[in-house]
Computed example of a mutant assay.
Amino acid sequence: MSALKSIKSQLRIIPEYMELLLPFAHSAHIRRHRAKIIASRVGLLSLLFAIMIPLWIVVDFFAFSWPTWAILAMLRTVSAIVFFGLYLMHQNCKTLNHAYLLLGGMMAIPPVFYLISQPFLINIETDALGTAVIGAYALLPFIVVAGLSVFPLTALEVLLTGLAVTVVVILGAAQQRDIDLQEFINSTWLMVVVLGVSIFSGMSQLHYMISLINQASKDLLTGAFTRRSGEEYLDLQFRIASRTDAPMSLLFMDVDKFKSVNDEFGHEQGDIVLKQVAKGLQKCLRRSDQLIRWGGEEFVILLPNTDVDNILPILKRLSDLTLGKRPDGKPVTISIGASELQTDGCEDWIEMVEKADHRMYEAKKSGRNKSVGPNPELNLNNIIAA
């Protein structure tokens, strides 16, 4: 029995590990914050590289003869301009896809520089300084993969980027007339080691970021989003829905007779009831839906891409739930008000919340444990079996 409980406890944390392995398991809230962090770090590093790369022209001047150093200087100048362009672009990054493009652009510059410069550096006669600089250039692909460790990335994202850079290393080796097999094996092994470290570091960064975001945005008692985070998400989804002419619905709900629980049985029992309600509500949500603790015993469920006709199946899923028992043994029930962006003609998300809130009070006045929506089909009785 204890072994079975141990297995179940381990299975519960699998979704948390999936967030570190694959980007598809992230909520919209996490994706939005991750995009901001990736874009911010791309901007910082791009500005740093835009300043430092031209300074290296001095080293090339002393390390190589004409026209090699001039060619490298031209490549560096172009690279610096591109880096500075990425720095300017990062301020307008709004989505994770944009952040991916910025990161990919930044990571592509050193490997491209490596591939273009290789033919000019192979088998040239130079002194000790030149040999050292050529060796430094050969490390560019490894530096790129190591640089991934400063970003909050999943294992899959780092792996795909690392494999792309590995292809660059192979192409660079293919440009040489006489390939040293032992040196190639050593380089490949070094790339594997660096890639492994970057994967672990990227996952650690991501785990730390998710933990901080959840602590700041989640209600500690119920695990739902806080009102502040919920308002941010509501605003984002409303702007997306308005721009794309997509449907968007909202459920405003209140736990019936919750004050009597606190008054008769104490706030500790009231907290238990709220935990039960949040846990039950989470079971009926899709991945895109969000549960928000609006305040006290009030909850909001945001339903992106959901028109008024598709609210009814969600209400019916709620009716199949149990939200636990009150301390007196009676089932916990809720009253619900629904609103929909296009049907209600709402000008902003605040109006959506106000309409749903008003309808929730209508449900309470008409007997509680009911739902009231923008059309009669959504006016249901006995939402929770009493």
Rank of each mutant, 00 (worst) to 15 (best):
residue 77 T to D: 03
residue 362 E to D: 14
residue 355 K to Y: 08
residue 347 E to R: 13
residue 229 S to K: 12
residue 217 S to H: 11
residue 210 I to C: 01
residue 339 S to A: 15
residue 355 K to F: 04
residue 333 T to C: 11
residue 381 N to D: 15
residue 219 D to T: 07
residue 103 L to F: 14
residue 332 V to I: 14
residue 54 P to M: 02
residue 243 R to P: 05
residue 337 G to C: 05
residue 278 A to S: 11
residue 144 V to L: 05
residue 200 F to I: 15
residue 166 T to A: 15
residue 35 A to Q: 12
residue 168 V to G: 05
residue 141 P to N: 12
residue 55 L to A: 12
residue 316 K to L: 15
residue 227 R to I: 07
residue 288 S to N: 09
residue 285 L to I: 02
residue 84 F to W: 13
residue 130 G to R: 02
residue 83 F to K: 03
residue 135 G to Y: 07
residue 26 H to I: 01
residue 131 T to W: 10
residue 361 Y to S: 02
residue 90 H to A: 05
residue 140 L to N: 05
residue 225 F to C: 00
residue 184 F to E: 10
residue 302 L to F: 08
residue 46 S to V: 04
residue 108 A to R: 02
residue 211 S to V: 04
residue 183 E to F: 15
residue 136 A to I: 15
residue 282 Q to F: 05
residue 95 T to I: 08
residue 228 R to K: 12
residue 153 L to G: 05
residue 74 M to F: 10
residue 268 E to V: 14
residue 125 E to M: 01
residue 293 R to D: 01
residue 343 T to I: 06
residue 333 T to Y: 11
residue 366 S to E: 10
residue 72 L to E: 11
residue 45 L to N: 07
residue 148 L to I: 00
residue 26 H to W: 13
residue 93 C to A: 11
residue 153 L to Y: 06
residue 109 I to K: 01
residue 377 E to C: 00
residue 49 F to V: 11
residue 36 K to L: 12
residue 182 Q to W: 07
residue 61 F to E: 00
residue 238 F to Q: 12
residue 279 K to S: 14
residue 67 P to H: 08
residue 216 A to I: 01
residue 191 M to P: 00
residue 103 L to M: 12
residue 215 Q to S: 14
residue 10 Q to F: 13
residue 289 D to P: 08
residue 326 R to F: 00
residue 139 L to V: 05
residue 25 A to C: 14
residue 359 R to T: 01
residue 175 Q to E: 14
residue 37 I to P: 09
residue 23 P to T: 12
residue 342 Q to I: 06
residue 256 D to V: 09
residue 375 N to T: 08
residue 288 S to F: 02
residue 247 P to E: 11
residue 156 L to N: 07
residue 302 L to C: 10
residue 308 V to G: 00
residue 364 K to M: 09
residue 305 N to D: 15
residue 232 E to Q: 14
residue 204 S to Y: 13
residue 37 I to K: 10
residue 172 G to A: 09
residue 233 Y to F: 13
residue 31 R to S: 12
residue 202 G to N: 06
residue 87 Y to P: 01
residue 383 I to N: 03
residue 218 K to D: 10
residue 355 K to S: 07
residue 187 S to N: 14
residue 113 F to M: 09
residue 152 P to E: 06
residue 18 M to S: 14
residue 221 L to K: 14
residue 71 I to Q: 07
residue 352 M to G: 01
residue 145 V to A: 11
residue 231 E to Q: 11
residue 157 E to V: 02
residue 148 L to H: 06
residue 344 D to R: 07
residue 306 T to I: 01
residue 217 S to W: 00
residue 118 Q to P: 00
residue 216 A to S: 15
residue 269 Q to H: 03
residue 13 I to P: 01
residue 58 V to M: 14
residue 238 F to S: 09
residue 70 A to R: 09
residue 383 I to V: 15
residue 126 T to A: 09
residue 121 L to S: 05
residue 62 F to Q: 13
residue 377 E to N: 13
residue 338 A to D: 09
residue 343 T to R: 15
residue 8 K to H: 11
residue 274 L to D: 05
residue 333 T to F: 11
residue 372 V to C: 14
residue 202 G to W: 05
residue 368 R to T: 02
residue 168 V to T: 12
residue 2 S to Q: 09
residue 110 P to Y: 03
residue 246 A to F: 03
residue 103 L to Q: 04
residue 298 E to W: 06
residue 219 D to Q: 01
residue 17 Y to Q: 15
residue 337 G to N: 04
residue 232 E to C: 03
residue 322 T to W: 04
residue 215 Q to D: 11
